[in-house]
Design a protein around this nucleic acid. Sequence first.
DNA 1: TTTTAATATCGCAATATTACGATAAAATTT
DNA 2: AAATTTTATCGTAATATTGCGATATTAAAA
Lengths: 109, 109
Amino acid sequence: MGISKIDVFNERQNKMASVFKALGHPARIAIIEHLLKVNSCICGDIVNELPLAQATVSQHLKELKNAEIIKGSVEGNSICYCLNPNTISFIKEYLNNITNTLKNQINCC
Amino acid sequence: MGISKIDVFNERQNKMASVFKALGHPARIAIIEHLLKVNSCICGDIVNELPLAQATVSQHLKELKNAEIIKGSVEGNSICYCLNPNTISFIKEYLNNITNTLKNQINCC
DNA sequence: TTTTAATATCGCAATATTACGATAAAATTT
DNA sequence: AAATTTTATCGTAATATTGCGATATTAAAA
């Protein structure tokens, strides 16, 4: 017991959940906001920006990369990170669908 | 160790993370999609729609309610649930800000 | 080639989440 | 009032996440 029953949900549901889950931690939100703030790709100063150990930041970056929320490319002896606009758009589209469906809906609450 | 360091991040970051976290489980995505599918509020048949025990569904509903993603109101001896459009809009705005900032950004990845 | 710098991974402890049976609570029906 | 229906909560086991020190890896610099 206690194991997530991801096999009983469809692929889209699992995909959406995993993207949202990746966004569901303040450290990862902070990473995203830092990437936005510097107005370019980041090659190497993310660790210094966060009040977390290097190993921890690396783990969070990995999760954001797995969810394709950020992209990373090797640049010399550091790695450049930036947001993946495709995934942001993907989430926005999902939410737009929700909003559009809600518009035509009879709500009692 | 291992405890989330939510105290070192700002309020907005923690708020965003908690909303995304609430969306970060396929069962909760399925609940949301079911609420959309029936095209109205749901008074009582969520449990039968999901391949999960009643206690588990109740727990997921609670999390969605805590994150203000759904609203619930008592209706006779059942409870009516529907999506909270405000929270959906809140998330969309956050993502719009990201997209807008990305537009003016020099990306190297 | 050795040193340095930047990231990633391992291993572990602490904590959180997930799932569900059992039971409680509250309103409806009989 | 007793039975039924609906939802919430408790307790607990299984699993997942978080955080970090230690260590590995990889590339640049000296």
